[in-house]
Nucleic acid binder design. Structure first.
Lengths: 228, 228
DNA sequence: AAAAAAGTGTAATAATTATGACAATTGAAG
DNA sequence: CTTCAATTGTCATAATTATTACACTTTTTT
């Protein structure tokens, strides 16, 4: 009894995640009755999802933070992404033909997840149009962002990648601040950090941009656009 | 009248595309009654979808072949993909938050497309569970394949990319045949063709693989796995 | 069958990037 | 305020890749 209330209370958090927050207030009580779920607790370092394992449930992280990693066949790890609550996990391949997880998800701190079986997800999608749309939209956005990343990485030179990246990040402003460290940007580009900084400083020397640590000023937008 | 029959006949082709072929025979008549569509004809060189344009309908290509291209801001084009009938077009961002097409789709020969408005697609998904599942599965598979590509491109050296690629393509067999030209593989890797061939021949000289044009023989699988 | 087009392997040189190391700066934790 | 970890900018050297060009083979078109 107590337990049930506790779970239901916790599970209510799912309405804060982008997959469920579109369910209208008026339908949430019904939704909570229709959803079949279990709540799982994890400690720091626990593995929520194992690379290569079949994945038949939707996981919604409602507390904590995880990293997803990809092991190459040597056994080294490659960090793929950070996900923090409240957010769904790996929605992208729940319905894929090969629904084995391409990554492992590992807790960076104590975490709580709501686990909903795939069949119940179908059911919810058919009953709650808003949920279906949110789900579709979520996956679609993932396709977009992956396409974007792929385009970025496909540009041949660091100059091209950097120009492309800066134009995106600037969002039309001439002056802005980088959201991540240069180390992370280098990783995003799949290049080495010194090489990235070198190119960045060259572009600064040419007067195309100004750089002061994370602060960027675009001085010649047209020149940036010509670089890729 | 004649026209309507003609269209309906043509539109029946949609059941050959991976999005609709899962609709059971018994439901197809109903499905065809429920689907709101128009049929469009295109000539070689026609643009079906323009980069940057809003995209509020599902396009199913039922005849012909198209290429999707991405224009960089210089005006040069980057070929993204080939799609041949029968297949849906750009399902990935129909439901994305920003549903502007990131690419242009251009006909390589006379083409026919069935165009279904987004709202009707919702409707069909809610009414026909098999259609919903197929749609989800289609987008999910796209996420998988993009993730795969991204992983490939993210590997630093050509050696690493090639090893990774060959292991995938081999599908466990020691001898197999490349599905595409080296030029295309080089493009997939975002590297130059001569550089790709050079690395490939080096690996052959080391006795890891044998290469005869498109025929590949993997002689030392373990060595390949160590290269990335 | 001839011609054209596409694909393949090669090489020299130039350009780009990785590596590994170092000092300087900043921000956070104590 | 001090200390420590993270971030940043820099450099020389080595390794990798792009570029451009050419000869050759295979496939496709005419």
């Amino acid at each position: 009894m107590e337990r049930k209330h506790f779970d239901t209370h916790h599970a209510g958090m799912i309405f804060q995640c982008p997959l469920c927050n579109s369910v209208p207030e008026g339908q949430r009580e019904d939704f909570m009755r229709d959803v079949r779920f279990s709540v799982k607790e994890y400690q720091k370092g626990d593995v929520i999802v194992t690379q290569g394992a079949l994945y038949e449930s939707l996981y919604i992280l409602i507390r904590g933070e995880i990293v997803t990693e990809m092991a190459d066949e040597k056994g080294d790890f490659m960090k793929v992404a950070h996900i923090s609550a409240p957010n769904p996990l790996a929605t992208g391949f729940l319905f894929a033909t090969n629904n084995r997880s391409p990554v492992s998800a590992i807790c960076e701190m104590p975490c709580t997840a709501v686990v909903i079986p795939k069949e119940n997800v179908y059911f919810l999608m058919r009953k709650y149009e808003s949920f279906m749309l949110a789900f579709l939209s979520y996956i679609s956005n993932r396709v977009s962002s992956l396409s974007e990343k792929l385009r970025l990485v496909s540009l041949r030179t660091i100059r091209a990648k950097l120009s492309y990246y800066l134009l995106r990040e600037s969002a039309g402003e001439s002056s802005f601040r980088l959201k991540t460290s240069k180390e992370e940007i280098a990783r995003l580009f799949s290049v080495s950090r010194p090489a990235l900084v070198k190119v960045m400083m060259e572009m600064a020397a040419e007067g195309v941009i100004e750089v002061d640590r994370r602060d960027i000023l675009i001085k010649d937008r047209a020149a940036l656009q010509k670089m890729f």
